[in-house]
């Protein structure tokens, strides 16, 4: 039956950006590490081995190492990816690793996505707004159509890894852009009948160029999303709804 695919034992060269902003003497440089490839080697395995055997000061972030927590996004040969599930066998013998852009650098390959995501959540209020936040938990739950629950989960699969932000032209130019991650979240709450906010409320949150009208439709977000979320479609839909809302607003003002 299934056997793990054979890999030749290549000698890999990892070119890694080194920079520790906490250390005044540290200057950004590329450093190369050599490593013998092993069968089924992921970047998690490779980077851990480099740290344990070659340079104990190398910083990077892994948590679940199973592609579900979103901690380990970095640029692999210039493209955002989850390092833990990136197999070395899919690349040539030279692999360049650099930290995700846009986010604040902590050190080497480690960036502060947490602060960015929390700011985004606070700004977009990414929680169910409803009268039922302190529900009577003894009673039968509110019913929901099974299909709708599945549709919400489709959008809720986002792991806030930051790949879409790193791949976004607007995010590189506008620090306040909420990114596909933020717009997808609002699309998720918009779909959810438990959230009592209306388009007028969402318009207040994303009805400008730091929100849905900042998107240039370059589609980098959807191309790079490791969870294959339908980001471009969600943004387009939201933009239509927000544009309609903007018209209503304009009309009601005059």
């Amino acid at each position: 039956m299934t056997d793990i695919i054979e890999t030749s034992h290549r000698r890999l060269s990892f070119h890694i950006l080194r920079y520790n902003p906490q250390d005044e003497s540290s200057k950004p440089t590329m450093q190369t590490f050599h490593l013998e490839e092993a069968a089924g080697m992921t970047l998690f395995v490779a980077l851990t081995e480099i740290r344990e055997q070659q340079d104990a000061s190398l910083n990077f972030d892994f948590v679940c190492r199973a592609g579900i927590c979103g901690s380990c996004a970095m640029l692999v040969n210039g493209k955002p990816a989850l390092a833990c599930r990136t197999l070395t066998r899919d690349f040539g013998a030279d692999i360049t690793l650099t930290p995700l852009p846009v986010f604040k650098l902590i050190s080497d390959l480690s960036v502060d996505t947490g602060r960015w995501m929390r700011d985004m959540s606070e700004r977009l209020e990414t929680w169910v707004h409803g009268s039922d936040v302190d529900p009577d938990v003894d009673r039968l739950e509110e019913r929901m159509e099974p299909e709708l629950a599945q549709q919400i989960y489709e959008l809720e699969r986002c792991i806030e890894c930051g790949c879409c932000v790193a791949a976004c032209g607007t995010a590189h130019m506008r620090q306040d852009f909420v990114g596909a991650v933020g717009l997808n979240k609002l699309a998720r709450f918009r779909l959810d009948p438990r959230d009592e906010r209306e388009d007028a409320d969402y318009y207040e949150l994303v009805g400008d160029e730091s929100g849905v009208f900042g998107c240039m439709t370059l589609l980098g977000c959807e191309d790079m999303c490791p969870k294959e979320l339908p980001l471009a479609g969600q943004i387009a839909f939201l933009r239509r709804k927000m544009a309609a809302q903007g018209m209503v607003k304009k009309v009601s003002k005059t």
């Binding site: 529900p135 938990v137 099974p146 629950a149 599945q150 989960y153």
Partner: peptide, 19 residues
């Protein structure tokens, strides 16, 4: 436990539903 599931349902967890 049932109260916990129901609280999370009200808070937005998209639990799979019976068809």
């Amino acid at each position: 436990a049932p109260k916990a599931v129901r609280e999370l349902a009200a808070w937005g967890v998209p639990w799979n539903r019976v068809q």
